[in-house]
Design a protein around this nucleic acid. Sequence first.
DNA 1: GTGTTAACGGGACCGGAGTTCCGTTAACTG
DNA 2: CAGTTAACGGAACTCCGGTCCCGTTAACAC
Lengths: 217, 217
Amino acid sequence: MTSGPESRRKTTAPDTGAVPGTVRPGGRTARVREAVLRAAGDALAEHGFAHLDLAEVARRAQVGKTTVYRRWGTVTALLADLLDDMAEQSEPRTETGTLLDDLAANAALVCRTLTDPRQGALFKAVIAAATCDTTAAEALHRFYAARVAEWAPCVRQAADRGEVPADTDPEQVIRAVSAPLYYQLLTTGAPLDRAAAERAARSAYAAACAGVFRREQ
Amino acid sequence: MTSGPESRRKTTAPDTGAVPGTVRPGGRTARVREAVLRAAGDALAEHGFAHLDLAEVARRAQVGKTTVYRRWGTVTALLADLLDDMAEQSEPRTETGTLLDDLAANAALVCRTLTDPRQGALFKAVIAAATCDTTAAEALHRFYAARVAEWAPCVRQAADRGEVPADTDPEQVIRAVSAPLYYQLLTTGAPLDRAAAERAARSAYAAACAGVFRREQ
DNA sequence: GTGTTAACGGGACCGGAGTTCCGTTAACTG
DNA sequence: CAGTTAACGGAACTCCGGTCCCGTTAACAC
């Protein structure tokens, strides 16, 4: 009863089940992706997550509405892709020689990122998306895991120098630097300034020295 | 040219500009509000912020769709009202006698709240809403300001006892307890367990003792 | 170069969120 | 206990986000 595969052979390919953009990722496809991600970032910085619609993104990117829906489908999926794209352009870690200064540098970097109108808006949006969508949440976890892993070595070096207990978990220290900054961004109206960054670094440093972040047992 | 106020006097009142529910807040109006807030909480725990629509809330609450749109209008406004409602039912602070234990009690409370399926979902949703809507953001700030103010006294008492520097800012200490818990909830997949709460309390305590949260100068 | 077909793009289409209209119910006043 | 009218509720309507269809363009293979 099934119509044979040779019947109705059209120029339109049968669905391969795969996501569009994976078989011929060059040229036009790459240009479209770039334009859409840029437009999405712009729209996000203006309207925020709640009022972001794919049709408008398509318009801004001068790309067919259908294309955006076919390749990304949902706002959260687009955000996840945007975050993955951004993960590739992270500033390299600086090394100062002391743990406190390294942490301060990290805090300043986080602070700068969250304060930047464009990046800040993006992060807020992705966090919002992550609260209600698994795909976005996983992208966010991946992103922070990578960032934390990049900065962890400075804690390991400090442990070698004897600045903190030898069995200190480096990743916990790095997260302790970011936590108060994100918390302040989300739950208070107060602006993220240099003092807040300084405090975040000193707080994480004091806790690490006190042995709060030592591994279990 | 304006039609006089006596012309066309209908039974329907002219718009007073005020939000419905403020002039006759008793009886039916109160019942409607209660039913809608309950239904909104239920829907939120199920679908999350992104897929919450007011029509469904109205259906669950067995209330006219029009009523919900008239009184709240947007999802974020409804969330703000829901948060204000929740702010009234906070558990009272416990007093243990030492700062570290007080902070641990606070951390445990926050942890319990965020872990609870219903309250946790609500908080995630409100945070998401706050990232893109001023009304929700203000409600969130009010909420945390109240919570922080409730717990601040334990730091003040500790300062009197000499546990921490006298010019320690109590609110910063309390926020330092919550920050890592919220950060973990949002940016990692790791579950919020007792150990995380314990760490949050000890970290804030160590930093406070080290004088990180002293007021400017 | 030529051929295949992945990927794009315009336009018609559809469903449901949000609005408007107006009649009904019941909260407050005296 | 009436009278006034704030607030509710059903139903029709509008508008637009998201989908579908199908023709066009151009990436990759040879």
